[in-house]
Design a protein around this nucleic acid. Sequence first.
DNA 1: CACTTTTACCCACTATCGCCCACAAGTCTA
DNA 2: TAGACTTGTGGGCGATAGTGGGTAAAAGTG
Lengths: 157, 157
Amino acid sequence: MANDLMLSGVSEISLDDKGRLGLPARHRQTLRDNGDKGIVITKSIFDACLWIYPASVWVGVSRSLGGLPSNDPFNRSMQRIMMGGAVELDLDGQGRILVPAPLREFAGIRRGAVLLGLNRKFELWSAEAYAAREQEDLKMLREGAGSMGSGAAGLVL
Amino acid sequence: MANDLMLSGVSEISLDDKGRLGLPARHRQTLRDNGDKGIVITKSIFDACLWIYPASVWVGVSRSLGGLPSNDPFNRSMQRIMMGGAVELDLDGQGRILVPAPLREFAGIRRGAVLLGLNRKFELWSAEAYAAREQEDLKMLREGAGSMGSGAAGLVL
DNA sequence: CACTTTTACCCACTATCGCCCACAAGTCTA
DNA sequence: TAGACTTGTGGGCGATAGTGGGTAAAAGTG
């Protein structure tokens, strides 16, 4: 069941010269268990990184996106970036995907990359961008812990 | 029952060259009694240390994290650090776990480490970082006892 | 229609991880 | 006090995951 997916974990991955990215074995396993054969890769609307969805999750996401009223410019921007950037891909025999050049460029990914499991999707960062992002995240968390965002203040970690 | 867990105590542990960490026997026993076979290790959002959750506790934490609205940057940072960092591991035959290299690096752990039981989870520190942290903790407590943090003022210790 | 570029599939190598065995030191018991 | 057991640590080895490269088909372009 797609809603039970719990993707997580950092992986340092290197793309080869052809732009292929090998999905870590544990994630391949998770996707298989979930009945997913394909994945959808698209642009993040928040950061210079890519979002990678299991195909079964993407259908729900794209449905929600498509259902947004398009009189709102923000919605139109979101649709253009996410729907427009979305490419459906299958894994090759070695469990790899070819990340399309425009998307690689969008995220500044050359060779070193970092793949983050985030519940229902993955985020793919260039190694450099991720290192910077991690520092920013930590800074924000450590400075702003007293004024936590919506819903987060009551979390018991 | 996961909510009854009462992990406590400090242990000085040394990781071997492969990055393996042997969980102290008394904690292994506690986890067994609790019906936990796996553990989840992730990054702390507050300090340069790692959080180690029994798998049964983690499911609740990750569900809470995943449910946070992602339009808030603070939430996204939290999700990226905690969900993104989270790796599920099983103990090997000797009751050890292999701490993934990116996480070891995050916490600056090389060989000497300190494991703290904190109710529902563990904190894993590098020996040096923990020594420094302990000094800071004591300093803060002695100087700031009059202005205790949220909820602590009324504590009967 | 021919040529160039890209992509998909196959094979192959190497570093790493997971599992097993082994030992040393400390602790409890008889 | 001595022996047996438990616990913490080290290391070897086989399986496999991660990466690189070649080749043939397909698609795009002039």
